[in-house]
Amino acid sequence: MNRVEDGEETARPAERSSATLRRWRRRLADEHAEAQVYRHLAERRTGEDRDVLLGLARAEERHAAHWARLLGDQAGRPRNGNPRMRLLAWLAHRFGSVFVLALAQRAEARTPYDDDADATAAMTADERIHEEVVRGLAARGRARVSGTFRAAVFGANDELVSNLSLVLGVTGGGVAAHTVLLTGVAGLLAGALSMGAGEYVSVRSQRELLAASRPDPTAPRYLPWLDVDANELALVYRARGMSTEEADQHAAEQLADLDPSPDRFAAGSGAGVDPDHEVVGTGLGAALSSFAFFASGAAVPILPFLFGLTGLVAVLVALLAVGAALMVSGAIVGILSGGPPLRRGLRQLAIGAGAAGITYALGLLVGGAVG
């Protein structure tokens, strides 16, 4: 079948098979559910973001109207959308976070209309563009949380792997259970404190470097006294990446319309970026999240020993707990980055298992040699 044009029906009532009707009803329910997702997200936002989300909801309702026209009086009772979309609507209604936007981005990427001859070309194009719209909205949220999120994820994953490796290493050496527990607790505290302090210094240093690159807010007040012939203002823009011709033109425009604002020097530099959208985060926020997540990750491998388990049973429980935690953290990273959650989770699991296995084997070797 050829793809239909806008407003054109593909089959007369007598030609509609039961399979076709079921597919159209499923498409109708999914579009209503998708529109609901965007409306719930819009409820938790204001300004431009809210308007964009409501625009997406209206577009999905137009798509739903297409399937309703095809079904006519055979639409039947209202149906629920697919479980994934219903879950997304529930999350959007209660949380409305960047994670929901990232999930919505993945949902838009899975559009079934590329292979559906009953969908119009405009609907197919809409879905592809919707993915880019949601990607743009999600990018703002990712930028706002990426500094703290990076520290949190790095801290949790690092200590999940390192403390599990530490526990397995000393276990492989044949030490007593209380020694394993003491080693794990010491690793937790040392690692969490070190990570928190290091993250604070790192982020503070990065913010200070960025601050040093921003225009001096007092410099524009001297524009009226510049030598127009020498036009040293053009050197500012050339230093920030403009070509000679662009810098001369921009400087001439600035001198013709003087405005003593520090934003005048931000052209071509990225220095006028809204601080709310910086990807660096704050030093204290990064340090606290790094400490908290590092400590929580480090606690997982020693939980079996805290509850009195010993030997192989404790090791197996620790492995299962850390494996589950690595899968979850990897999936979260996948969701936020727009990647496949399962693949990201398996990658985290494989890395952790490899590091722990090597450390356990070395512990066995060293323990055997010492013994």
Rank of each mutant, 00 (worst) to 15 (best):
P224Q: 13
E208W: 15
G272H: 13
T282H: 04
L316R: 14
Y222T: 04
P275W: 03
G308V: 12
P262A: 02
D257I: 00
P217Y: 08
V322D: 00
E232P: 10
S269D: 04
G272A: 15
A324T: 09
G283W: 01
L306V: 12
R238F: 11
I302C: 03
L303K: 09
D227Q: 11
P262E: 07
A267G: 02
P220H: 07
Y237S: 00
A266H: 08
A298C: 10
P304M: 07
A299Q: 12
L312W: 14
G281C: 02
A251L: 11
I302T: 06
A239P: 06
N231F: 07
A321D: 05
T218M: 14
E208M: 15
P215L: 01
V315H: 08
D274I: 02
L303G: 05
A266F: 06
L233M: 00
P262N: 05
L288S: 11
D274A: 10
T218W: 10
A318S: 05
E232K: 08
M242C: 12
E278H: 15
L288Q: 07
L235T: 12
D227H: 08
A287N: 03
G268S: 08
L303H: 03
R221Q: 09
F293E: 00
L309R: 08
P260T: 07
D229K: 12
A256E: 03
V313D: 10
A211M: 13
I302F: 13
S289N: 12
T282E: 12
I302G: 02
Y237H: 06
R214T: 10
Y237E: 00
Q206P: 11
P260D: 06
M242S: 13
L235W: 02
R240H: 14
F307K: 03
R207C: 00
S261Y: 05
R264S: 02
S269L: 05
G283N: 09
G285W: 01
A211G: 04
L226E: 05
D257E: 10
P224G: 02
Q249Y: 14
G297Q: 06
A252D: 00
V279R: 13
